[in-house]
Nucleic acid binder design. Structure first.
Lengths: 210, 210
DNA sequence: TACAAAATCACATCATTATGTAGGTTAAAG
DNA sequence: CTTTAACCTACATAATGATGTGATTTTGTA
């Protein structure tokens, strides 16, 4: 019997999920919550094998919930269940420790299948997601070894910014248009999964020392 | 005979400076230029004892000129001659290696006096400037020893920013208003003589390691 | 106590950055 | 010879950061 707990702030959807899970012969619902603020206490009590976690919830995001959960109950498998498929959330969810990432639009049947899959050691995810993850993994693997996957130009620009230069100064230094600088930085952010110069600098400089 | 070279992009002013300097019995003009791009070559040729340098010049700023000059000809004395008296330029000029900093509005006589003064080991500067420099020195001395003069709070905030946090995140972290963060950062910038987070981070982290 | 420095908050305004969209060039890889 | 990756440019809008001004409170110390 697979024990499953649900975290989903939408009441209707949470109930639907619950009944669908109960309907499965080999799965039992041990907990169902509208937020994940008390996720640690709940898990202590419920002892679920698998947790279905929505990303966007009031109070505490699913990402944070996953992070906490994995830290204290590393054996618990987590499947993110969300409407979002943007790179960022996926990346965050994966690095936070989720083993599955399924889109709500793909329906309940797939989610049930995902629960079984995750118990067999798999990593269930919607096709759309799978592709993104593969790509990210490819970038990541290539990158971490050398310079996080940044092209020489991109790295050069980040390093200039790290010295305290503004976009304008970098543009002048490299004899490029400021729009070009923007463009490079934009791609850099995507590769590093960040949203500001300081984050990018932090990431690049941290990875550098070793 | 004191050998002097002039770098000043305003033609009229450069000529006026030249004649005023030639008029002085113990000073000879060995070079006069409208820019400082070729300052190293010129200096090699002219071998001036003192260089009068304007700050704002096309191609290469006087600050950069001073930096280069001091690196290759440390014995050459440099007097900045400019219309600006804002803290920043003064600070930059001083740290770049200028030994005198005189305002154009104070006239040619004072500049001539400054040339003599600098040759006697002095540091000629207009009264307005002198006061600012004293203040900067006071701040600087107190600071360089520990953490550049930053208060504990200010340092804390810069370090949080260095980790890639935004103002908003820092405010949440420290349970403060975002305006308070702004306020601290503003003071920090004044103390460090910078104008952006990245510059501040760079400066703080550089000074830290040693 | 009275002054100075640190810390807090607010509001306004301008500058810079971040993000989206879109297109072009060039050089290596298949 | 086409595909891919890196590089370059442009324009528009939204979000964040930078700067100025002003004010209150606390704390350490002259």
């Amino acid at each position: 019997m697979i024990k499953v707990a649900i975290y989903e702030d939408n009441d209707g959807l949470r109930e639907a999920l619950g009944t669908a899970i109960e309907a499965a012969k080999d799965i039992s619902l041990v907990g169902s919550y509208g937020h994940c603020v008390t996720v640690l206490d709940n898990t202590q009590k419920d002892k679920p094998d698998v947790v279905i976690m929505d990303i966007d919830m009031p109070g505490k995001s699913g990402i944070e919930g996953v992070r906490d959960l994995k830290k204290h109950f590393p054996a618990t498998e987590i499947i993110m269940n969300t409407v979002f498929d943007d790179d960022d959330r996926i990346y965050q969810a994966i690095t936070a420790g989720a083993t599955g990432y399924m889109l709500k639009r793909n329906g309940l049947q797939e989610l049930i299948a995902g629960i079984h899959e995750v118990m067999k050691g798999g990593a269930p995810m919607s096709p759309t997601i799978a592709r993104k993850v593969m790509k990210a993994a490819a970038n990541g693997d290539k990158g971490t070894s050398q310079n996080l996957g940044l092209s020489p130009r991109e790295l050069e620009i980040i390093q200039l910014l790290a010295k305290g230069n503004s976009y304008k100064m970098v543009a002048q230094d490299l004899n490029l248009s400021i729009d070009t600088i923007r463009s490079h930085i934009k791609k850099t952010y995507e590769k590093l999964h960040v949203h500001s110069v300081t984050e990018a600098i932090h990431k690049v400089l941290i990875e550098k020392r070793h």
